[in-house]
């Protein structure tokens, strides 16, 4: 991430505060959904969707992935591929 001027940093600080509020609100929403006793598949879908949104906010803004260099994206793309394989392998093999 290449942020140089003080004005840029101050803008970023405002974004960090907004992301923090969003993360706190999404945490409350996640817990609220869990008390609604939805069918399991809907509960999993909602909880993981909200967790993914929260994770994306942390990665994009706190970890600055929204404005990173290509080499970082390349590393993470390879990582994401093998991570997806790890998660899908047990699902696929269990239905065989």
């Amino acid at each position: 991430m290449s942020v140089d001027s003080a004005e840029d940093i101050k803008k970023h600080v405002r974004v960090y505060i907004m992301v923090f509020v969003a993360l706190a609100a999404l945490t409350v929403i996640t817990v609220g959904i869990s008390y609604m006793h939805l069918p399991t598949h809907w509960a999993i879908l909602f909880a993981l969707t909200v967790a993914t949104i929260k994770g994306s906010l942390v990665a994009c803004y706190f970890m600055h992935l929204i404005s990173e260099r290509k080499v970082i994206y390349a590393i993470l793309a390879i990582c994401a591929f093998f991570f997806a394989v790890l998660l899908w392998a047990p699902v696929v093999t269990s239905s065989m």
Binding site: T30, V31, I33, S34, T40, A43, I44, A47, L48, V50, A51, K54, G55, V58
Partner: peptide, 11 residues
């Protein structure tokens, strides 16, 4: 932790 929380506690 953002993923551990729902997976272990809420689902």
């Amino acid at each position: 932790w953002i993923f551990l929380f729902p997976v272990l506690y809420l689902l």
